[in-house]
Computed example of a mutant assay.
Amino acid sequence: MKTAVIGSGSWGTALAQTLQDNGQDVIVYGVDENEIRDINENHKNSKYFGDTQLNPLLKATTDISAVKDADVVVLAVPSIAIEPIVRQVDAVLEKPAVFVNVAKGFHPVTNERLSDVIRHSVSPDHLSSVVSLIGPSHAE
């Protein structure tokens, strides 16, 4: 099973590390080229975790098309970014995926729950289900 973690910040990296350590095939998507390079070349995300070593099998990319064959999409981005990033993911997905929201909050304009935002932002043929992993979390 392939998991795409969207967001290379502290929470996304921590979740990706845990999934990779548990034998999952994980790719991290992020927009910060320095974070992505640090993960791929140094097996670290120094910005958030200093010298903590990441699993050397963990890979990262700035290319959203890397999520096209994901079975699970973990959304570890701020709530304001959920709708646009989900639309980007939907545009490249080739099969249904489980979407796991780990962002807190509501849509900043409509005040909808993020699970509802995800459901109406993903085409039905790309959406297997939506789940949320919400609670106190500060990955550092």
Rank of each mutant, 00 (worst) to 15 (best):
D71K: 00
P78N: 06
L54N: 05
F49A: 13
S46C: 09
S79H: 14
S115W: 00
A70P: 14
L54I: 03
I118F: 02
R113M: 10
I64Y: 06
E83V: 03
G105K: 01
I82Y: 01
Q88M: 10
V72R: 05
I118C: 05
F49N: 15
R113P: 14
A81V: 13
N45R: 10
L57V: 10
F49S: 14
V92P: 09
V67A: 15
L58A: 11
L93P: 08
F49L: 15
A60C: 14
V77Y: 11
P108N: 06
V67L: 12
R113L: 11
A60H: 04
P56N: 05
N45C: 09
A76C: 09
K59F: 14
L58D: 02
L58W: 01
Q53R: 09
A66L: 05
T62M: 15
K95T: 04
D71C: 12
R87L: 08
E83N: 08
E94I: 11
V86H: 03
E112K: 00
D116L: 09
V72L: 14
L57Q: 15
D71Q: 04
P78V: 15
A66V: 06
K95H: 05
D71F: 13
R113E: 07
G105P: 12
D90F: 01
T110E: 03
H120A: 07
I118H: 01
D90C: 01
V73S: 12
N55W: 00
V77G: 10
V74P: 13
V72M: 14
V109A: 08
